[in-house]
């Protein structure tokens, strides 16, 4: 795919200060995102997966400039978003939209669907005033709702329908990139499937690019072209969907995939049950951050931080950050449990 690079995130760091002590000094930092680099091509869907607190949403928020990143660059269409001022950034928001998890909390309960959509159009001034109603109805039909529903309030809709309204609002300004932060997580499976199909359809129709944040790997496999796996603020593996699910290289990715219950009682699988909890991002483990739970960890893992790398047994563009990929692959290093 020799495609245009739409978004390029370089060495992104987001440290949140922890205030404390006598005078509210900064006593420590939550290293929510620590040196993350990836890119997204136009028209593709890249997913970010990982356990709660690993920095998925923070990455999304940084791209939207909802937080001020500590370090790094975020290039969108060749322009560094982090160097823009507030006003310039507001203009750029037209191109980058977001859909959140909780469809109800992100819609103003006092506005009708039309008002919600018109407001989005007005802020970015993409549709002249007298055309807005027409456009709103068109948008509703695009996301599978009825034209008659345009004057209703959010509480008159079901969860799945509200999420459709959220999608319509994002589409209203004709964005290039949509960040979906757990956009289907709160929905029941039967409805979730509807919304996933809708997102795929819209992507084809409007050549949209998605950054899809999720924790459900089934959903991720279904929607993504490429997948980024994060652990404690770092990218541990990045690959096209097929390689990631069929040929995972990082011990964490393997454990994560094996932990998902398979909806097939006869599927034989080997489960890697990790010990313990995810450590705190306040003082994350040194070296490889996964070493406290990794079944392959050696002394070296405790001190040396592994870099993302591509090896012969991996497809092009597939990278994992582990010192021992080769030895694990060849069977020279065996699991400790």
């Amino acid at each position: 795919m020799a495609q245009k690079e739409l978004l390029k995130v370089n060495n992104l760091k987001q440290y949140f200060p922890i205030k404390g002590g006598f005078l509210g000094r900064t006593v420590n930092h939550v290293k929510a995102v620590d040196d993350v680099t990836f890119n997204i091509y136009e028209g593709e869907t890249v997913s970010v997966v990982g356990e709660s607190g690993c920095g998925k949403s923070t990455t999304g928020r940084a791209i939207l400039r909802l937080d001020d990143p500590t370090d790094g660059t975020i290039e969108f269409n060749g322009e560094d978003l982090l160097s823009l001022n507030k006003k310039e950034m507001r203009k750029r928001r037209k191109d980058i939209q977001v859909i959140f998890q909780d469809p109800y909390a992100s819609l103003n309960p006092r506005q009708t669907v039309f008002q919600i959509l018109a407001e989005a159009m007005e802020i970015q001034d993409v549709v002249p005033k007298d055309k807005r109603r027409e456009r709103a109805i068109e948008l509703l039909e695009t996301v599978g709702l009825n034209a008659e529903q345009v004057d209703r309030f959010p509480h008159e809709f079901s969860g799945g329908q509200r999420q459709r309204i959220g999608i319509a609002r994002a589409l209203a300004v004709e964005p290039k990139l949509i960040i979906c932060d757990e956009a289907v997580s709160a929905l029941d499976v039967s409805v979730q499937a509807q919304v996933l199909n809708l997102l795929k359809k819209l992507q084809r129709e409007f050549n949209l690019t998605f950054l899809f944040i999720a924790h459900d790997l089934g959903v991720v496999r279904h929607i993504s072209d490429r997948v980024i796996v994060m652990y404690l603020g770092k990218v541990v593996e990045i690959a096209d969907k097929k390689s990631l699910f069929d040929n995972p290289q990082h011990p964490y990715t393997k454990a994560l995939l094996s932990a998902i219950p398979t909806p097939d009682p006869e599927a034989k699988k080997e489960r890697i049950v990790l010990q313990g909890d995810v450590p705190s991002p306040i003082n994350p483990p040194t070296g490889c951050r996964f070493h406290t739970r990794c079944p392959f960890a050696t002394e070296m893992c405790k001190t040396d931080t592994p870099e993302l790398r591509n090896l012969d047994n991996m497809a092009e563009g597939h990278q994992a950050s582990c010192h021992h990929i080769e030895k694990i692959f060849s069977g020279d290093l065996v699991s400790k449990y």
């Binding site: 089934g218 279904h222 699910f245 998902i260």
Partner: peptide, 12 residues
């Protein structure tokens, strides 16, 4: 309706 993590499903 279930998107599967273990097999590819074209359309849910």
């Amino acid at each position: 309706s279930i998107p599967r993590h273990d097999i590819d499903v074209d359309e849910l």
